[in-house]
Amino acid sequence: MAQLTSPPQILTTTLGKAMRWSQQQSMWPATFGLACCAIEMMATGTAHNDLARFGMEVFRASPRQADLMVVAGRVSQKMAPVLRQVYDQMADPKWVISMGACASTGGMFNNYALVQGVDQIVPVDVYVPGCPPGPQSLMHGILTLQDKVVSGELAR
């Protein structure tokens, strides 16, 4: 509470900056766990690695409440339409992280069953390498996304 006697406390900024800052600080991921990477995503969210330190531990079960989709695992041909539908249900602005080798490129399963890279279905902002990426890698991926958002590179 500002004292009446103190000098006026005013912060000037641009609307864009304020918007990007708030977008960066409230990134709520939708749980889109598919395979092995989903287990690492869960491990990132729980006690030992504690994603809450970065203010994005609020994993939302409903895509309507989320603005970040972490595609964690291999995307099969059968799952692809579902994935796209979930993405379409998310409210703008939204971002996508492709977690792991399978989601990014199909990984070691270059065959009939898998979509060879989730970027064929949804636009991907950050690719996290690894099979599966450790919790640190995923955190780095999310922090990279935050940096990109706040710098205006990915502002929406």
């Binding site: 598919l34 395979a35 695992g73 291999r74 099969s76 059968k78 799952m79 579902v82 070691m108 399963f109 065959n111 009939y112 069953a113 898998l114």
Partner: peptide, 11 residues
Amino acid sequence: IGYLHTGMEKT
């Protein structure tokens, strides 16, 4: 089921 079919037996 089948939403995670990866074709591992083929691979």
